[in-house]
Every structure is written in C-alpha cells, then in structure tokens.
C-alpha cells in the first residue's frame, strides 16, 4: 500500500473516486496520509466525512486546493480550514466536474455547456450563443494521479466495479497520468468476461489489493 503512493510528491494534483460513502479508495488515502505529501491539489466530489475518506488529509493539513461539487456538511476539517481561509475551493456542478474529466481523458481541451449559465459558476468564463441558446466554456480537468476503487482487477488492470461504488472511478481512471486502483480482489488475466469490463487496463498503472474500508 505505502509503496503504491511512495512517489507522490508535495504539490501533486490527485483525483479521488467515491460518492456517498461508496467507492472511496480509503486504503490509498490512508497510505497518502502516512506518506505525508503536502500542498496537494485535490479533485473529489466531496471533502471527507470526519476523519474518513479525504477527512484525514485535511486533518493532517496536506491539502491546499480543492475542486469539488459538494464538500459536504460532514467535512469537518475542510469546513474549518475553508472558513479560516486556509484552503482554496473551486466549486463545480457535479455533472460538469465529471464531464471535464471525461473531456481531459478524451483529448478534448474544453467544451461548451449550458450548466451554470447566468449563475456564479459562469463568472470569468467565455459565453457563447449556439443555435439560439447560451453556453459557457468549461476547461478539461486532469491530474497527476487518480486514486480509485474497484471491486476486482485482473493482473493487467482490467476493472469491474460493485453497484453504486462505480461513480467517479471509471472517469478518473482516464484523466490522470498515473492511475492507482485499490481492489478487493485480483484475478488471473483472461478470467474477467470482456463484455463486463468497465475500465480497460490501458487506463490503469498500479493495482493494490486491500480490504475495503467503508465510512458509512
């Protein structure tokens, strides 16, 4: 576990999968907490629940900047640091957060979107009328590392997920230079049904076998 995150430097940009307590790479997060990399820029739907999920990284003051859709009332350490002006937040509509990652992974540098037109989200963004409707320009969003959680990997890194624990994980896998996946089970290559593979191995760089930690 600690080996998988041993090269993460201070100042790195890291994406974290997970939503609503499901699909968080909690063992990798704990590993990053032990590693102690600081000044991190993180991308995640939310900002932890108490000490759980990303909470431990805020508690340790390892994070400087966050891109998130819903930091969350349970994100105690983040909220304290946000109120104190110690951490920067870019708040992004959830569908745009993942679409910006999808664009990055797909080689699209930016795209026009109707979400947030006429709201605070549009501030500072180029607006354009296309076929009579207003749109704003959204930039692709990538990272140095993606920490994701899947249920099962084969030895090549093909991944399948479990239920709603899939959420952001397959998208983040495509949008980082190095994708590190935490799984409950590793199987021999060739034993996963190719029809069922959600994340093909091309997106996965490191696999860590670890019993999932849930923060219900």
């Amino acid at each position: 576990m600690d080996l998988a995150v041993a090269d993460i430097p201070d100042g790195a940009t890291v994406m974290f999968g997970g939503f609503g307590g499901a699909g968080f790479p909690n063992n990798l997060i704990q590993g990053l907490a032990r590693r102690g990399a600081r000044n991190l820029s993180v991308i995640s739907n939310n900002c932890g629940t108490g000490d759980g999920e990303l909470g431990i990284l805020f508690k340790n003051r390892q994070i400087r900047h966050v891109v998130a859709a819903f930091p969350g009332p349970g994100a105690t350490y983040f909220q304290q640091q946000f109120d104190a002006g110690e951490v920067e937040l870019e708040l992004v509509p959830q569908g745009i957060l993942c679409e910006r990652m999808r664009a990055f992974g797909a080689g699209i540098p930016a795209f026009y979107s109707p979400v947030g037109v006429g709201t605070d989200v549009a501030k500072g963004k180029e607006e354009r009328v296309i076929r009579g409707e207003r749109y704003i320009l959204e930039q692709a969003l990538g990272a140095d590392y993606a920490f994701i959680k899947a249920q099962r990997a084969d030895r090549m890194g093909n991944l399948v997920y479990r239920k709603a624990a899939r959420n952001f994980n397959p998208i983040m896998a495509t949008a980082a230079k190095i994708t590190i996946v935490e799984v409950d089970e590793v199987v021999e290559t060739g034993t996963l049904d190719p029809e069922m593979i959600v994340t093909p191995s091309i997106y996965v760089n490191r696999i860590v076998l670890a019993k999932g930690i849930h923060n219900a």
């Binding site: 998130a68 909220q79 109120d83 937040l89 992004v92 509509p93 959830q94 569908g95 745009i96």
Partner: peptide, 10 residues
C-alpha cells in the same frame, strides 16, 4: 461553510 452545488445545476 462552503456550500455545495452537487447535481442540482445539471
């Protein structure tokens, strides 16, 4: 607090 948009805008 920071507030949160979630999926509401989309």
């Amino acid at each position: 607090g920071a507030g949160g948009i979630g999926g509401a805008m989309d």
